[in-house]
Design a protein around this nucleic acid. Structure first.
Lengths: 160, 160
DNA sequence: TATTGTTATACTCTATAACTATA
DNA sequence: TATAGTTATAGAGTATAACAATA
């Protein structure tokens, strides 16, 4: 029987190591055409791949403040991967859309990132991979739910 | 049967969400005495809790460059949590040690961090917790091994 | 007046390259 | 000359608070 405390300890211990490992694996990927993207940038482009969003939506979705997202979008726009236009229907809002270049950069980098991590994970045997996948599923579901709750509270004005 | 690619995808998708969730959980912990510490700072103090290290050792252990570590140590020293003295045996090296204040800050913050994450994990049922723990064990072992290899290569001069 | 987004400010984490001090 | 560490420089991610534009 695993108690929550032990699990928390292991998570806190594992998280920074994994983060550095993954960042390093991504950084070492030689992407011929584009500058390397960070994990966060890949994730933002991924979110925008399916549909356009306002800045606020993207910030909530990504789990950061509007201020932070505004800065991150600056970078994506500067690189030419995202376009920023004001919504005619409500000119306070901006519509963020992937450009063609952004779509290409994302496709390429996403693939490279996946390959880098896939290489790592191929070192595991079947049982280990099974365990890892299950654990990640649990974690993913838990935090997604948590984030949705927080976003809901933010809307409902849980401010102190 | 779980293939490595799917596992890599899930890891890439899960990692940023978890990181934000954990950071947020830590940030919301009200620590009465000390300023809140970041995850990385807690980890550094934890490493130094057992024994003193040189800057280079600490950098390798934490998985960053000496430059980065030098900066991180600046902050810890400024806060009064770590002492930096030059090694009499080889004055190029620096001995990093936890101060009493650092020991206290770590104990306190580490506990708060664990509690914050424990609360989160208590939302899982027994089976889910079991799965999460197993998955984290696999991930932890994999990345630890990887990091040890990289550190070994760095020593052996695999630079190019 | 309320909402959306940007900017000013400040901090942490990160790396490469140039540099200092020591061996 | 080689090694340990610091500093100069640069960039990304982060937040709060003050602000501008729009509704």
């Amino acid at each position: 029987m695993v108690n929550a405390r032990d699990c928390a300890r292991l998570l806190l211990e594992t998280l920074p190591i994994v983060r550095r490992g993954v960042r390093e694996a991504m950084r070492l990927q030689k992407v011929p055409v584009h500058e390397p993207l960070t994990m966060d940038q890949v994730r933002l482009l991924k979110i925008l791949r399916h549909e356009s969003h306002s800045l606020g939506e993207l910030a909530t979705r990504h789990g950061v403040t509007a201020s932070t997202m505004s800065r991150s979008v600056d970078i994506l726009v500067r690189r030419g991967w995202v376009s920023r236009t004001s919504d005619p229907a409500d000119r306070r809002q901006v519509i963020l859309q992937l450009t063609d270049g952004g779509r290409g950069a994302h496709a390429e980098m996403d693939q490279h990132a996946e390959e880098a991590i896939t290489l790592l994970i191929e070192e595991l045997d079947d049982l280990e991979r099974e365990k890892l996948f299950s654990g990640l599923e649990v974690l993913h579901a838990l935090l997604e739910r948590k984030q949705a709750e927080d976003a809901g509270l933010a809307l409902a004005g849980g401010g102190s």
